[in-house]
């Protein structure tokens, strides 16, 4: 029953997010602030992880290709496919669920604990729109982060290839251009937009409806991370089935 209640409350929160909009001049500032906090603030960690995981994917692929009849350019091909299809959109989203999700839950949860949300409501402000909508809009720039993750993942793979001596630059570049299907990029970005919505709303829900004090803010952040990850993994499966299996 609790799960059903929470799912219902979540969808009501989504509805409230679009009701009674906050004055545009205030909303604009909130959106810019959230772009800075959620998107710009995540670029460093995303770039670091993407570069090195791209390298690891390349090394693992190269080390597992033992047959001499398999061409070396397949290392680049496998790296590109892994990064564009799964690593950048899904793996990075799980990391963002930890980084951005816990930030959203704890900041909104702290506002709940310290009566700041009550203060907004007493003033007649739609607190859900004020707090969640700018995060939702800011995370619509999430595909930009994922593009950087894709690019740096492939560059990281190339660096690992060169410095590890697994294949030549020419082979790697041939591999990443081999049998390129543009729809795979579309598929990756469709997933990214869906995950961005999940990243903005599930942590906000856990922060907004939390009860208790500082300890509960920590618990809500953990719960938000778990549920955001679970929903991302489930939606990843559903979207892959829908978009790639036809």
């Amino acid at each position: 029953m609790t799960y059903l209640h929470n799912i219902g409350a979540y969808f009501l929160m989504i509805k409230d997010m679009f009701r009674k909009p906050t004055k545009w001049s205030v909303m604009r500032d909130l959106i810019f602030k959230d772009i800075d906090d959620l998107i710009i603030g995540s670029l460093g960690i995303v770039a670091f992880i993407s570069f090195f995981v791209g390298g690891v994917v390349t090394i693992q692929t190269a080390l597992n290709i033992t047959s001499p009849i398999i061409p070396k350019y397949l290392v680049g091909f496998a790296t590109r496919q892994s990064i564009i299809l799964e690593f950048a959109p899904t793996f990075i989203s799980i990391i963002m669920a930890g980084k951005v999700g816990s930030f959203i839950t704890s900041s909104i949860g702290t506002m709940r604990v310290t009566e700041q949300i009550d203060a907004l409501e007493v003033m007649g402000i739609n607190a859900v729109n004020y707090l969640v909508f700018p995060k939702f809009i800011a995370l619509m720039l999430y595909p930009f982060v994922i593009s950087i993750a894709m690019f740096l993942g492939i560059i990281g793979g190339m660096a690992a290839c060169i410095y590890g001596g697994f294949s030549t630059v020419d082979d790697y570049i041939t591999g990443i251009q081999l049998d390129f299907i543009p729809f795979h990029i579309t598929y990756a970005f469709i997933k990214t937009f869906v995950f961005a919505f999940v990243l903005a709303t599930i942590p906000s829900f856990h922060g907004y409806y939390m009860k208790g004090g500082a300890l509960e803010v920590g618990k809500a952040s953990t719960t938000a991370f778990v549920w955001t990850s679970v929903v991302i993994i489930l939606l990843n499966y559903v979207l892959t089935q829908l978009l790639l299996s036809s």
Binding site: T114, E115, Q116, V122, M123
Partner: peptide
Amino acid sequence: RSEIGMVFQGSALF
């Protein structure tokens, strides 16, 4: 609501 001012127990400053 816009005509109401409220002082909360914990101040509730943003």
